[in-house]
């Protein structure tokens, strides 16, 4: 699978969970890997690239870390949108 396509799947996966479940890195890697039949390492790599550019972000709450779709506030702070 093309990396861009894989990243779209990852984004969709996160979007589906938004407000329902806090996803850990592991949940995304396992979930997308199983659904798309792509090796976990590839999903991890694609996801990390998304985090590096602010398409996704690490979050933290209630004592544990998770991965989420960034808020507008976050994107503005990082200068990624105006």
């Amino acid at each position: 699978m093309e990396i861009a396509e894989l990243q779209n799947k990852i984004y969709a996966f996160c979007e589906a969970a938004k407000g329902k479940k806090k996803l850990k890195e592991k949940d995304i890697i396992k979930g997308v890997s199983e659904a798309e039949g792509v090796p976990g390492d590839e999903v991890k790599k694609a996801m990390r690239l998304m985090i590096d550019v602010g398409k996704l972000m690490y979050s933290y709450g209630g004592g544990a870390s998770s991965v989420e779709i960034p808020s507008e506030e976050y994107l503005r702070e990082k200068g990624l949108i105006k």
């Binding site: 590096d52 972000m57 690490y58 933290y60």
Partner: peptide, 16 residues
């Protein structure tokens, strides 16, 4: 409670 803050690409190192 701490909020979600940090630097791009990292998931830690800053406590909100």
């Amino acid at each position: 409670h701490g909020g979600i803050v940090g630097v791009l690409g990292y998931g830690g190192g800053v406590i909100g």
